[in-house]
Structures are given as structure tokens and as C-alpha cells.
Simulated scan of single mutants.
Amino acid sequence: MKIMEFKHKDIYVKVHTPLIVTREVSDNKEELIYASVIDIDSRVQAVFAQFHHAKKSDDVSFWVRHAPRIGETNFDKTSKVVKPVGKYKHLSQREDETFVTGVIVNEQVLERKPEGYIIFAWDGDIEEKLFWAIDRNYETPMLYEWTPYLLNRLITNKNLVPLNVHDYTGDYSKLVVFELLVGEEVLDEYISSGLKNGEIVLTEDNRLKEVI
């Protein structure tokens, strides 16, 4: 478990976090995509509130560091700085009389945006999640059998890039997260090229009738 400290001007709040997902933009800067938090209700709600008031991401930072147990002295004291970017949604749920769990999610995770779409595969099956993401959010005709080919093309050309998963409890060992950076024009080109080159095959299939 880690502590995520929120610092913005004279505001300071800290909550515990078992998991964060970030986008790395430089060697010393990561942008917040997703965070799972757990703490007393007032702290969780205080962190949520900052997303409504903080307007400039350059003024806002999250410091992630080890959460020492009572009496623990010999522990890693380094910290990671994470910046929010774009718009976020949040949701909380009471676990008991003391603790509340919550999630902070970039809107790119919830719906397709012009700048891209973020795909979570909690079970590690990115092929399946990529197929459903394209089938539901893009106009490109798609068969499930084409997914390995398309996945390879997207990753090779850096159109589908992995994001950083920071699992601080070991409960999310299978989770992988990718960001899809292109739209229908590129996806259609890949599918058309694959059909012409014989890398994928167009077969009679009821699923095909549903997407063309």
C-alpha cells in the first residue's frame, strides 16, 4: 500500500492507494490516468473535490510514497510525482463505518476522445479487450479473428502504447492498460492492407454480416 498525497498551493490531503495507472511523458513526469484510493470518508472526498477546483495541471501534483506501518522506521522514503491531465470522473463506496474506497478515472477510460481511448484488461487479455473496444467505439468493420494481426500492427507502429500500472499490493498482477492513439482512418488502412496481403482472411461468418 502507498500513500498518495495531494498538494495544490496551501491544500494538503493524503489517502492510501493500492493501485495507480499513469502515462509516462518524460523521465521524471507521469500523468494520472486512474487511481484507486481507500481512507476515511473526509480524506477521500477532499481529494475528489480538488478535481473540481484545480484548473491548471501545472499547479497540481500527487506525491506517491510508501505508507509506513506503526513503528516502521527502515523503509523506502523515495516518492513519485504524478500530475493530473484532462478531465476526470470519480466514484466512492463505503466499506464500513470507518473506511471509504474510491476511484479517480480519466474520461479517456470511460469513452472515446479525439486524443485517444484507453483500454483496461484486468485479466490481461488485451486481444479480447481491443476487439470489444473497436467493435463498440469505432466504425471500422472488425472480426475477432483479425485481432492478433491488428494488435501487432498497432503496437509495432506505436499506435497502441502501454501505460504504467503501479500495483502496490500485488492484487492486480494481471492488469495491463493500453492507449489507442488512432481513429478509423488508420484502422481501416490496416484492415484493408491485411486483406490484400493475405495476413487476414475474409470468410463467411454471421459476425461479419453484423459489422458491414
Score class of each variant (00 low, 15 high):
150 L>A: 01
181 L>W: 04
25 V>W: 08
74 N>F: 11
142 M>I: 07
20 I>W: 04
5 E>I: 12
193 S>C: 12
188 D>R: 07
199 E>P: 01
3 I>A: 15
36 S>E: 15
85 V>I: 11
185 E>P: 00
68 P>I: 06
199 E>D: 13
47 V>K: 03
69 R>C: 09
20 I>T: 07
125 D>N: 12
191 I>V: 15
10 D>H: 15
19 L>D: 06
8 H>T: 02
107 E>F: 02
155 I>E: 07
96 D>Y: 03
112 R>F: 06
194 G>T: 01
96 D>S: 00
35 A>H: 07
91 L>F: 12
169 T>Q: 07
157 N>Y: 12
42 S>I: 11
66 H>N: 11
87 K>M: 08
123 D>I: 05
11 I>M: 14
188 D>L: 02
53 H>G: 13
175 L>D: 07
12 Y>D: 13
37 V>W: 07
74 N>I: 04
162 P>C: 05
23 R>W: 09
85 V>D: 09
177 V>Y: 06
153 R>Q: 13
86 G>F: 02
25 V>H: 10
67 A>P: 07
25 V>C: 07
79 S>K: 13
37 V>P: 05
142 M>V: 00
58 D>R: 13
7 K>C: 11
92 S>V: 04
129 K>P: 07
160 L>P: 01
180 L>V: 03
184 E>V: 09
47 V>T: 00
60 V>E: 05
134 I>D: 00
201 V>L: 14
166 H>G: 03
188 D>H: 10
149 Y>D: 01
55 K>V: 11
181 L>S: 00
195 L>I: 01
100 V>H: 06
107 E>C: 05
144 Y>I: 14
185 E>R: 09
41 D>N: 14
31 E>D: 10
14 K>D: 15
29 K>H: 13
94 R>S: 14
149 Y>F: 06
36 S>Y: 14
48 F>P: 03
122 W>K: 11
19 L>A: 07
52 H>W: 09
203 T>N: 12
17 T>R: 00
80 K>I: 14
92 S>T: 11
131 F>D: 06
204 E>I: 15
41 D>M: 11
161 V>G: 02
111 E>T: 04
67 A>Q: 10
120 F>R: 01
92 S>I: 06
146 W>E: 08
181 L>I: 05
123 D>T: 05
182 V>F: 06
44 V>H: 01
89 K>V: 11
175 L>W: 04
43 R>N: 15
10 D>L: 12
210 E>I: 08
169 T>C: 10
43 R>T: 15
90 H>P: 00
85 V>E: 12
205 D>N: 15
135 D>W: 10
129 K>N: 10
96 D>P: 02
106 N>T: 06
47 V>C: 02
52 H>F: 13
39 D>P: 02
165 V>Q: 05
133 A>P: 04
51 F>V: 02
114 P>M: 07
39 D>K: 04
183 G>N: 08
45 Q>C: 14
161 V>K: 04
160 L>R: 02
136 R>Q: 13
88 Y>K: 04
158 K>C: 11
11 I>E: 15
148 P>K: 03
160 L>K: 01
22 T>L: 08
136 R>E: 12
